[in-house]
Amino acid sequence: MGSRKGKCMVFERPPVLRAAASVVGKKEGEGPLGHCFDVVNEDAYFGEKTWEKAEASLQRTSAGLAMQKAELAPTQVDVVLAGDLINQCTPSTFGLVEFGIPFIGLFGACSTCAEGLAVGAALLNAGYAKTALCVTSSHFSTAERQFRMPLAYGAQRPPTAQWTVTGSGAFVLDAGMPAKSGEICIRAALVGKPVDMGIVDANNMGAAMAPAACDSIQQFLQDMDCTPASFDLIATGDLGALGYGIVKDLLGRDGLVLDNVYDDCGLMIFDRETQEVEAGASGCACSAVVLAGHLLQQLREGILNNVLLVGTGALMSPTSFQQGESIVGIAHCVWLSRQP
């Protein structure tokens, strides 16, 4: 059974992150974390005919790889929780249909990775599933064409723009056995609430999501009686340089000094000096592949012991944006911990 502390879900039998897989594109492979990912594909189409099929293929590959690492057949997985940025989440359904696993589609924009882990952990802890697969993806070209301009159009990118990560991360959650020493489990999670601070610029998602990140981090620390020092790392999903600065500054004003424990996945995956990504990275895959490829490795090696993943999402659609609506931010917290 689970319990609740304030607004947080606390897992009494913490689900174990049995395996994870990351698949990325060429540009991500050339970044500082390039060596951490399981698959780096040079072909942006991933052997398919359309960008959308390419993104579906990303999910198929990462999900297949994660199950293979966990030594599970698709029939042994009780539920898959997946989502992406594209209308009606078709890359998720088309990518995962062939596995025949009961499917829950999620939309949390770029917070989908954390959302999937939180919901999956809750299902497992409550006993409704023994094994869950959480998958998410984004593709630069599908996102650009849905939300912005055609790729070959000579549009200008302002310094606050972020680069959508091409990739997919998949995670196998397992409640079959208690975590053994050195295994990584999910201790608690907070489902964030939507926050609207009136940002309307689709080229400034970091500023739109930062208030939600502040809100969720504060709520989580307060409910769980923690301080930033309780964690080796607090990692927001994809706030980029501006959002990262805002979170640090605003929480600092409220007396929460994040200093050395705070980083943003959107600042880790690309080299901003040389890779022309302006404020940093974004997309569902940003936090998913950084977690699957990089952070979990550091947790396994004991370099990190407690990580608070704060998945951030900008909730908007091309229609809401064209109608002048503001971008609603959201942030979900997931506490990942290495079993001592």
């Binding site: 302002p158 310094p159 606050t160 609207d196 601070m197 009136g198 940002i199 400034n204 500023a207 208030p211 502040c214 809100d215 340089a241 501006l242 600065g245 805002i246 500054d249 605003l250 409220d254 404020a279 503001s326």
Partner: peptide, 20 residues
């Protein structure tokens, strides 16, 4: 965070890197 939307808009403006 005690800011109105308008105050937050101005704050973001002041924090954001400007185009060259």
């Amino acid at each position: 965070m005690n800011m109105t939307k308008a105050e937050y808009g101005r704050y973001v403006e002041s924090m954001a890197e400007k185009s060259a």
